[in-house]
């Protein structure tokens, strides 16, 4: 049984269908990136999974507990970090965590220990007496994560946790999220920047205009949309002959000159690609460069989403 299972949820706001029959699942200990442009429906999907919004159709199961039938049971399993910080004025880090620990009915030593643990885990122990409104964005984000962990949820839903963080803070966040997955938690993280998530996630789900465009590992998704790989070849001499030879080989398209070399597109298996290289050598050409150009993550994202505005 997956830890988090989204089953065909649809949510309409008046005439706008913000989420359209979205389904995916996350196993224990896995991190899934939820990627889509602004207004794609990420927050709406996550709020439904967090019991804060009701879907018009479909359901979400958290460890098998339906957010519709048993929202209270589902909430106990869930840590939700919204895209706003949820700060209180004139409150120290420790007071903030102590308050939410009490709100989750943790009492006495258990509460004190738990607050210390999450402070420790997020490396905020030294700042416990600081007022939270004086914190930098990255530290505030870490405090929010600490707050989310207080009741030891088995499923984490993080809405744009890396938004607005500098590279160092982003790396630190990534390490924390990785560590949490290592503890066996299932994690859903959203972003509108694929590169922000690619190194962190085991899988991604791409959403646009309320619809899921692709799911799977980053590699799968990349390969799935990339039917033909562009390959750049440069030979010691005879670029014209190279171009003619390539035209005659099977499984090769769109041959064109680019600078000193030639670019062609190849849609076959890695074996047939190595066959191409062998054929070039066999024809007496002397390749000095032979580089398949995998699409960059940004290009994958752009080719998946058409930049439709909602």
């Amino acid at each position: 049984m997956p830890a988090l299972e989204v089953r065909g949820i649809t949510k309409r706001f008046g005439r706008l269908t913000a989420v359209d029959n979205v389904s995916f699942a996350i196993e224990k200990g896995r991190i899934t990136g939820f990627i889509g442009p602004n207004g794609a429906g990420k927050t709406t999907t996550m709020r439904i999974a967090a019991t804060l919004e009701l879907p018009d159709e479909g359901d979400v199961l958290l460890d098998g507990v339906s957010v519709l039938d048993d929202p209270r049971g589902a909430r106990a399993k869930l840590g939700f970090m919204p895209d706003s910080y949820g700060a209180y004025p004139s409150t120290t880090l420790w007071e903030y965590l102590d308050f939410f620990a009490r709100a989750y009915d943790l009492a006495g030593d258990v509460r004190r220990r738990r607050v210390e643990e999450v402070l420790e885990f997020t490396s905020l122990s030294a700042l416990r007496e600081k007022e939270m409104n004086t914190l930098s964005k990255g530290l505030k984000q870490r405090l929010c994560l600490a707050k989310t962990l207080l009741h030891d949820p088995s499923i984490l839903i993080l809405d744009e946790p890396a938004a607005g963080l500098d590279p160092r803070a982003r790396v630190e966040l990534r390490e924390l999220v990785r560590a949490l997955a290592g503890m066996g938690k299932a994690i859903l993280v959203s972003s509108h920047i694929l590169t922000e998530l690619a190194e962190m996630c085991d899988g991604i789900a791409v959403i646009e205009a309320g619809q899921i465009k692709a799911t799977g590992s980053v590699g799968d998704v990349t390969r799935g949309i990339q039917s033909a790989v562009p390959v750049y070849v440069r030979v010691l001499e005879g670029a014209d002959r190279l171009e003619r030879t390539l035209h005659e080989l099977p499984g090769i398209e769109r041959v064109r000159r680019e600078g000193d070399g030639v670019v062609f597109e190849h849609a076959g298996s890695p074996e047939s690609l190595s066959g191409v290289l062998a054929a070039l050598v066999g024809a007496g050409l002397r390749p000095v460069e032979f580089t398949p150009r995998a699409m960059g993550l940004e290009e994958v994202f752009l080719s998946l989403t058409q930049g439709k505005m909602q």
């Binding site: 804060l52 909430r75 989750y104």
Partner: peptide
């Protein structure tokens, strides 16, 4: 009003309060 503006009211609803 602050609970609504800061989004903390969502966090409270999710807790056991």
């Amino acid at each position: 009003a602050g609970e609504w503006d800061e989004g903390t009211q969502d966090l409270l609803v999710l807790s056991h309060l």
